[in-house]
Design a binder for these strands. Structure first.
Lengths: 128, 128
DNA sequence: GCTTGACCTGGAGCGCACTCCAGGTTGAAC
DNA sequence: GTTCAACCTGGAGTGCGCTCCAGGTCAAGC
């Protein structure tokens, strides 16, 4: 509820490391992160919201360069909404393909494991 | 049916690049690849079978070091069947987690896209 | 006012999985 | 017997996404 978080608190809540948070700011993925008088970062709820989005995109395999593009569009304002939507739509399409591939290969993996269940059972209880 | 394939044919059939095939042999993932008198590689159907397995494991995110371990066990003979089975079982478990995460994040992505559909529609047909 | 742990910066380093390169060899087709 | 595309080797280079480091600063608690 408070809405102002230290770097380590932001790291804890977002699941990104401190170094990764600094890295994301350095490359311009995060921008406008507040600072105390002494120069320490202060993260807001909005920043954490962005981090949640980045986690979603990252976990689904979006390259950082594309996340940067998305963040940049968002910073540019409302009139980029359509472009952002299209970007996410394209990404979602790729994720669907990835999920289908993963499912297919998972099924092969399960087949292989079933094969081993046969082999191992035969070896464990040999002809008796 | 023939069962003897040139490097480029093996690459075509497996979907791995020539460089990747050479790399896999160099690190010991592939072993016992035949050679012509002149030193060129000759891939058999069995080799292609292994490549199919590697593709499955790779597509499901297994690190190369673990694939090497698996290949090594297989080379060691029948008595490693249980260990190979366990290795694949552990991997399958990780793949399940990965699929669950991917599905969750995909759903978030779809939510976000739906949100944009609202925004874009409102902008495209403003109050009239 | 001192200690101490969290934080700062710029930049180097890392792990992974390839990918590319130079310089040379092979072998099928003509 | 010449050509030329496909192949060979060892080793260097690449792209990604962090991760680590040195050397210093800040601020809360005693």
């Amino acid at each position: 509820m408070s809405g102002r978080y230290s770097p380590s608190e932001a790291a804890r809540r977002s699941g990104f490391s401190l170094d990764t948070l600094r890295y994301y700011e350095k490359i311009g993925l995060l921008s406008g992160i507040g600072r105390t008088a002494g120069g320490r970062r202060v993260f807001t709820d909005e920043d954490l919201g962005w981090l949640e989005v980045f986690r979603c995109l990252r976990d689904t395999g979006m390259p950082i360069a594309e996340m940067c593009r998305y963040a940049e569009l968002a910073r540019d304002g409302e009139h980029t909404a359509r472009e952002r939507q299209e970007l996410l739509e394209r990404h979602a399409g790729r994720v669907e393909e990835q999920m289908a591939l993963l499912r297919r290969q998972y099924d092969h993996l399960r087949d292989k494991i079933r094969y081993y269940e046969g082999v191992v059972a035969a070896t464990a209880a040999p002809a008796n």
